[in-house]
Structures are given as structure tokens and as C-alpha cells.
Amino acid sequence: MALPDNAKEMIVEELTKKSKTKTKFYFNDLSKMFPEESPRAVKKLVNEMVSEGTLEYWSSGSTTMYGLKGMGDLG
């Protein structure tokens, strides 16, 4: 099973839809969008999106989350 061609768009759309109530997401929130796919394949994709500047990491030091770049509290 491969990730759909528009997987990146699907992630952006999902995160944008939820952005009024939530701007930071666990990796699991993203990987569950593609239940047929292995988490490691999804990881590859979301990290690509970080490198491209679509997503960004947010880290508390112990936990890491993903968010659309520039969304929400950055501190």
C-alpha cells in the first residue's frame, strides 16, 4: 500500500480544518489519517513537509508535535 499522491494536500487540509481549535498535532494524529500505511512511511512524508517548510516541529523538550508553519503560539 502506497501513500496517496495527494497525501501532503490531505495533511494540510486536515490541519487547516482543525486550526481554529488546535494548531499542534501529535505524529499519531497524522499517521492515523493513513491507517493502511506504516508509521515509518508517514514519518518520511511529514519530515519532507518540514524540510519544505509546510510543517514545523514544536517541542516541549519531552514531546514533539507538528503544526502548519506559523500557526498558533510559537513560544
Binding site: 516541529y57 517541542s59 523538550g61 510559537l74
Partner: peptide, 16 residues
């Protein structure tokens, strides 16, 4: 505690 700070390409190693 925490934040988006880090170095390019790394998701860890820096704690805001």
C-alpha cells in the same frame, strides 16, 4: 517551556 526553536532539519537537540 518548549517552542518551535531548533536547527534546520532536526526535530530535537534544542529545548526552547
Amino acid at each position: 517551556h518548549g517552542g518551535i526553536v531548533g536547527v534546520f532539519g532536526y526535530g530535537g537537540g534544542v529545548i526552547g
